[in-house]
Design a protein around this nucleic acid. Sequence first.
DNA 1: CCCTAGCGTTGGATCGCTCCAACAGGGTAG
DNA 2: CTACCCTGTTGGAGCGATCCAACGCTAGGG
Lengths: 356, 356
Amino acid sequence: MATPGTRRDSSSRASASRASGRPTLETVARRAGVSRSLVSLVLNDSPKVSQASRDAVLQAMADLDYRPNAAARRLAERRSRTVGVLLNDLRQPWYADMLDGLTPVLYGAGKHVLLGDGRIDQMMDETLTWSFLDFGVDGLVLAGSIPMSEAVVSIASKIPTVAVGGRGLDLDLPHVDVLANDNERGAALVVEHLAGLGHTRIAHISGLPSVAGRLRMQGYGDAMRAAGLGGHVLIDHGDMSEEGGYRSTVRLLSRADRPTAIFAANDLTCVGALSAATALGVQVPAELSLAGFDNSLFSRLRALWLTSVDGTAYPMGQQAGQMLLKRIEQPSAPAQTRLLPPRLEVRGSTGPVPAC
Amino acid sequence: MATPGTRRDSSSRASASRASGRPTLETVARRAGVSRSLVSLVLNDSPKVSQASRDAVLQAMADLDYRPNAAARRLAERRSRTVGVLLNDLRQPWYADMLDGLTPVLYGAGKHVLLGDGRIDQMMDETLTWSFLDFGVDGLVLAGSIPMSEAVVSIASKIPTVAVGGRGLDLDLPHVDVLANDNERGAALVVEHLAGLGHTRIAHISGLPSVAGRLRMQGYGDAMRAAGLGGHVLIDHGDMSEEGGYRSTVRLLSRADRPTAIFAANDLTCVGALSAATALGVQVPAELSLAGFDNSLFSRLRALWLTSVDGTAYPMGQQAGQMLLKRIEQPSAPAQTRLLPPRLEVRGSTGPVPAC
DNA sequence: CCCTAGCGTTGGATCGCTCCAACAGGGTAG
DNA sequence: CTACCCTGTTGGAGCGATCCAACGCTAGGG
């Protein structure tokens, strides 16, 4: 305290940097023959550093194999240069695709990414969510239909947040942006496609209670009416699972006015529908057309080859990244909601309406 | 500096804690009428705190809704109470299952979990891997066949690390534990199952160049010889993809000594094999038995219903967690390798050898 | 010839926490 | 009565970075 520079250096500081293997700012500074502050400036490439000093510092860093300590940096700055991504369920391929779009954007802006699984989090009493907060993430991405627990809501209102994916428009927090698949439009695409093939008795296996499921059902109904098929609206309630799709299909196909086409709320349901059709000896697509939603890996298997709506996960991830970065810049801008247009991937499970 | 307690508090410290919304140790201490140190002790529930003080502090914490700042904590302690998990590719369901087993163990030991995707990391020039290091993770879990880049190797040798999953025994770093599926045994299970059904002409579609693929092929060969079927060993090289499985199967089925059973290196390959059989009008399992590996979601779809080897991802995650915790305790213990016995899930794609 | 401006550089305070040596106070032993 | 221990509590010195006010130096204007 009373002792000046040199002496102190050779006692406390120096011993510390010798003890731990990792070099610190101090170590680099000493090696380059400059002050800690200057090294810090180089680190954040400030324009007001002379070329000579900059070179010396960079050289020293390279020599020592120096890497800045993230914790110290976070403590000193207010921000953490890190965003948290809370996924609903890693199992679903949609998330992986979305992440592929999201992460490059964030990394490009110098942000690190922390991944969390909402499913895990529920099991873990939301420690994960809280630890994002403790950690001091600069922003948060909520992906998919995350259960809006108290913890999540309270954090989303404190930290710049973007909700992306299946999440519908029911999320209504003041400064949270929402980026979603246009589920209603996607459903309409399917109905239009099937109607174009001559189908009229087009049934729907819904995927309640999820928000996405509700919107798809809504879109189905609206599109049917728009196509003048309002009288043929037929909905059986599934649960987004293969099993549910199977059972619904069995019910639908045993009706007198058996549908010639079924639009399933998601691909898994559609796979179940396909199994049921096969089990009942109904030919697809000759006697029955099937369409799913998500354009998942399942629908792309040649053994199944299902027509499906593509939720455009990748571009959605990209946009989510950009929206989040903007919101971090301006945390109190008014919340915005954006819908992305889906695309229909036509494969082998849909065909013209049977003659009879 | 020269000024004692009270005065200093009311100048620098107090203003700081007023400025930022979040309460700090200082804030809590003042409210509870104790020192910062004592609050810290309570936080780390030290036994040497009187009940009275503890209650007062806990009350203050609750009142202020206090949460410790993770960055500060990490900086002060040497450790970060965090482990990094580097996955190969989130798309594969195996990882999700493994994570389900892994994370509860780690959380239970007070560790937080940082997830990273190796695929992302390759795209990102390994920034992710490095940022784990900067972050100061206490340990690292390498899941699956992560490409052993320079960065990963150099970090794995600095930080307690456990490699889990497909990763074979080729990883040979001094203090890195390996926990793997017993791929050879799994392959043997399939061969034994098929031989038990009377099959002799059992072919294999391999999954080179991955390590898991190599071991499965090895296990197949050994088991065939052990069953006295060494003369019938027949291997076609696939690439772990559906397309590869399809093509291999077409080749295999067009042979004069057409096999009556095919063991595919993984489920995706097996799905391709199924498509090929269907396309060629070969009945499964009446004329051809098929078995896959991984017991993935695909194999469980009732439209496919494939016999498959279960890699027991969940218990593997659990064990990996325990191994890592032990290694963090004793970083320099000798490296150990453990293999977990797989299990065969028999479904509808395998049956007795056809009569002719 | 002095005063100011700008550039590059520096020391020191600071972020919020942990850890350690020191300490007060009450009980017991010498 | 003094010495000593034990329990609970405290202040202060770090951890490794950022940030800001102040500094020395050279150059240009009055």
